[in-house]
Amino acid sequence: MLEIKNLNASINNKEILKGLNISIKPGELHAIMGPNGSGKSTLANVLSGKEGYKISGELKYQGKSLKEISIDERAQKGIFLAFQYPTEIPGVNTSNFLRTSLNKIRKAQGKKELDALSFLKIIKEKSNELGMDEKMLLRQLNVGFSGGEKKKNEILQMKILDPSLIILDETDSGLDIDALRIVADGVNSSRNKQKSFLVITHYQRLLNFIKPDYVHVLADGKIVKSGTKELAIELEKTGYKGIN
């Protein structure tokens, strides 16, 4: 699904990723943990195609290089990034936006666009699953949403857009215990043999709900240690200083 080899990324002359390797097969869920500022969000941004980075190394998605593929095309090909800090977009109605986005992606994938009614059905069902107030979907996109509501809205988009590679950047931060469980359920029910996940988190707690196949530690721009979920438990005890 995803093959990253010797990835280097810098921005404004600051090197952030320094030779990162990671390989994710279809159906796998990888967790990435790491100190603040180690480059986790940068990795997520680079995968999404965000502009402004100087990049070298190999970046392959579904067997093909992602070089030269724009942000929107990556989304259309099934890469989804749930933002650490979802952007507030005034004047854009959440539900209309979701429909535009979904139809855009469906069309690119050769599927039929959904009419307003079928869309409404889907969005109703998915937002209920996440315990979201439907009224929120009539509001402007993320504007004035609480931290937790924003995160839920990201997961709602993930569920609706049905992507193949899902990157969750600290989706668990800022969620209360119940919301965390709901979001984890949302992720778990989406897991299948075709989908891959890259879950960035600071908390081992999340990994009790979402069982990772692998856990990696990202420090100073590279993966310094990889293991299974026991690694996360160990980290909880020793902290990042204790490894290496």
Binding site: S48, G49, D72, R74, A75, F80, T87, S101, Q157
Partner: peptide, 15 residues
Amino acid sequence: DSIYYLMTRGLTKIE
């Protein structure tokens, strides 16, 4: 950032 966010959801820059 708004354009980036929308583009990660499959919309082109013009859209």
